[in-house]
Nucleic acid binder design. Structure first.
Lengths: 282, 282
DNA sequence: CTTGACCTTATTGTAACAATAAGGTTTACG
DNA sequence: CGTAAACCTTATTGTTACAATAAGGTCAAG
């Protein structure tokens, strides 16, 4: 009965294309069991479907065709479980990566939603903010010096550090700069420190700080050049309302827009200062 | 201060290679902000790091470089959330696929473990087996006809049906053939039906049957050619031990080994017949 | 002035095929 | 018997996101 199956039929039987069979033949993964010496027509045996099944199976598992050649060459059936285990580990790794990316996407989506809900740029708000954890880095140069340039350099340094600490990349899309209370109390907006928001999970790294839950005054701002002006609005508001600065000034980057004017970052920032009622000593 | 950054430095600043920057320039994704007209040296601005950040970010999200060009061309910030949502869906899909593959791998690994624990080939065992659900297909030709050939064809038909019903591919690695009680009682090992084990989840498809929980006699067998001989061993055992056939004969493929002799499938099968104590009527 | 570090363009390679071209073979039909 | 459709062949190119290499020009330091 040994039926000789031409390539087209074999392809249909296995839901693959003729090219794929050509390809497998070319790389020596699966060659037809008979080739007509005159026409070079390829003929397969129905039994070779088993091999194709296995190829599909391994492909599903993430093996490359070259790896499969190795698998087929192995006469040792005991090596299979090892391969399977390795592949399971690889898949776990991939799934973790995907989960991480998904998290990042969700953060981004949430940020955009926040961005759309922003009431008005330049309007002072007052509200309670929960505790947040940040990873701080001191770039030793004032980021307000020259039009974002220093900021970009320091940002790169922060990212390199984050890479060393193996922080998830998602952290990198929620950053900010910090100006210490002493400076801001003197109306000096100078800062050498930037940070990224992190989870509570990585706690043994130097540079991690807690921003305590507190009442804040905040204001949204959509260009770096406005930051100083808006920050002073905050301070003015604090003075006018008999409040007192209760901690460090934070400039949080809410969202980065993928539009560049002269390649420059376009970002929405939320400036914030923790406040408390003025103590009666004054 | 506008520092002109040569390509090597820019690459280092962003943890990428010079080739990558060349590539981005070539495809028009990101071009240096200045090119020396004499030497053609490329020079970047530190601000262009923002763009690279975004490229990395989008790459992480699974966008292709061409898609990014589209994203950059869009001046509309509102299109971003849509893109993000689409990408989240894509990721969910990928994760589901990976989960499916992982499941398959685990089944395979388990099967191999079972295979190693198989006590002896050709030895009759007796034991209780839980309920199982199968998807049956009648190929209308006897699979015991010609040396696996018919079996291969029918297997392909079963798989095509499974594809139509959108069964997970993992089902395809746990198949078997069934010989109805009437035949086996007459010592006739003819079967036109094969099946795949499935979950309880897909219930509305025609062809699904339940193998009830029952006591079985079973025997392992490692070559198709031995099946008949071993099946008769089972029947003999049943007769000798005053038992009675209580249901259909099942030939379950436990594991397929990736070694081919003449391209032929090498598989370990577990032959099984449900039994009960002989009723005293005989 | 030379050496090494750095830059340029151009070509080839990667993985797993898909698409196409240009041509030969087989089969069915009138 | 002729022909058209269906099928087969080999060979080339294209896809993605770069990496690797070659052959050569440029720059800064000693």
């Amino acid at each position: 009965m040994q039926e000789k199956i031409p390539i087209g039929k074999m392809a249909k039987l296995n839901n693959i294309t003729i090219q794929t069979l050509h390809h497998y033949d070319k790389i020596g993964l699966l060659s037809p069991c008979y080739i007509d010496p005159e026409t070079n027509y390829r003929f397969y045996s129905i039994k070779q479907c088993a091999c194709l099944d296995f190829i599909k199976y391994l492909k599903n598992m993430g093996f490359t065709l070259q790896e499969m050649k190795g698998v087929f060459a192995e006469k040792d059936a005991d090596s299979i479980p090892k391969l399977l285990d390795e592949q399971i580990q690889l898949i776990d790794q991939k799934m973790n990566e995907l989960a991480q990316v998904k998290k990042t996407l969700k953060v981004a989506a949430e940020n955009y939603r926040t961005y759309r809900q922003i009431p008005k740029m330049g309007v002072v708000e007052r509200g309670y903010l929960p505790e947040r954890i940040i990873y701080c880095y001191d770039g030793k140069r004032d980021i307000y010096e020259d039009q974002l340039e220093t900021y970009e350099y320091i940002l790169r340094e922060l990212r390199d550090l984050a890479l060393i600490h193996q922080f998830p990349t998602s952290y990198f899309c929620n950053v900010g700069s910090i100006t210490r209370m002493e400076s801001i109390k003197q109306r000096k907006l100078t800062s050498t420190e930037i940070f990224m928001f992190i989870d509570a999970t990585c706690s043994d790294v130097k540079g991690i700080e807690r921003l305590p839950a507190h009442e804040y005054v905040s204001i949204y701002c959509d260009h770096f050049s406005q930051e100083k002006e808006y920050a002073f609005k905050l301070i003015d508001y604090i003075v006018e309302n008999q409040l007192e600065i209760a901690g460090d000034y934070i400039c949080e980057v809410i969202v980065e827009l993928p539009c560049w004017t002269q390649y420059e970052r376009q970002m929405i920032m939320k400036l914030q200062i923790p406040v408390k009622k003025k103590s009666n000593s004054a």
